[in-house]
Design a protein around this nucleic acid. Structure first.
Lengths: 131, 131
DNA sequence: AAGTTACTACGAACCTCTTCGTTTGTCAAC
DNA sequence: GTTGACAAACGAAGAGGTTCGTAGTAACTT
């Protein structure tokens, strides 16, 4: 019978930064993650290691211990986590109003005409999908 | 000369919940906030008080001490904070892609046809505004 | 074999967040 | 004036998050 594994919790800020690396790089060693993080802010190797260990306990990442240098991998796809985070914020800060969220996002930073067009296209496709 | 006050920090989960009450009720006493919160989850009066005191230190709320029962008020308008939160998440979890954020939000919960129409209308107006 | 390097594991320190019990102060009514 | 109600202030405890130093261990080099 299938193991019943609960959804991993919402990642914290530091955890999300690591997940970002794992999503873009794919399965990686601690060293690889550490190097990627190092570009953005100086961090000790063991800090990244500890974080990854804790994330493994929480179920945010999976760990392959077959090699000496363990390989870590995000347990959930990027889109899944993004959905959690967006839905969570939508609920907590925007009382569920997608329009308000959009307004907030667009006014937070300049958005190109291309991106606006993309958004429209996306709305069309979305509507078609839920018909 | 004008006091140079830094922007308040990103509110935590519990703080955001209180801010929500203040935005909808307007300036309120601790008791009023406590009652409003109590509808959603049982909480001690002093917990709300402490939270508000800390939020005042952080600059998230202003406090009027003229009355015996102090009056608290959100220091920033709802829209401002929403913009911060949306921009922050956009940056941290969506690499700045407004489209991805929208996709996440829409797939997080069902959205009515009316809301979709609203979104389109909003996009049009937004484009007009940034011409 | 001894020394060097690369890795994991562990533990502790420090901070923030959240919660609540207790104390202190103020005001009004009896 | 004493009492009771209601308010702020304070202190502390517990949980979680973040960081890092140190220790232990396996593999590689000479």
């Amino acid at each position: 019978m299938p193991e019943l594994i609960p959804d991993p919790p919402r990642p914290t800020d530091a955890e999300l930064e690591i997940l970002t690396v794992l999503w873009s790089r794919g399965p990686s060693t601690v060293r690889e993650v550490h190097e990627a993080i190092g570009f953005r802010k100086p961090t000790q190797y063991t800090t990244v290691l500890k974080l990854l260990q804790i994330m493994a306990e929480k179920g945010l990442v999976r760990r392959d211990e077959k090699q000496r240098a363990h390989i870590y991998e995000a347990s959930q796809p990027c889109e899944w986590t993004q959905r959690q985070l967006a839905g969570d914020l939508l609920q907590r800060a925007f009382s569920g109003s997608a329009k308000s969220l959009m307004l907030g996002a667009l006014s937070a930073r300049r958005v190109s005409k291309e991106e606006l067009a993309e958004l429209r296209k996306f709305l069309d496709e979305y509507e078609k999908g839920t018909r």
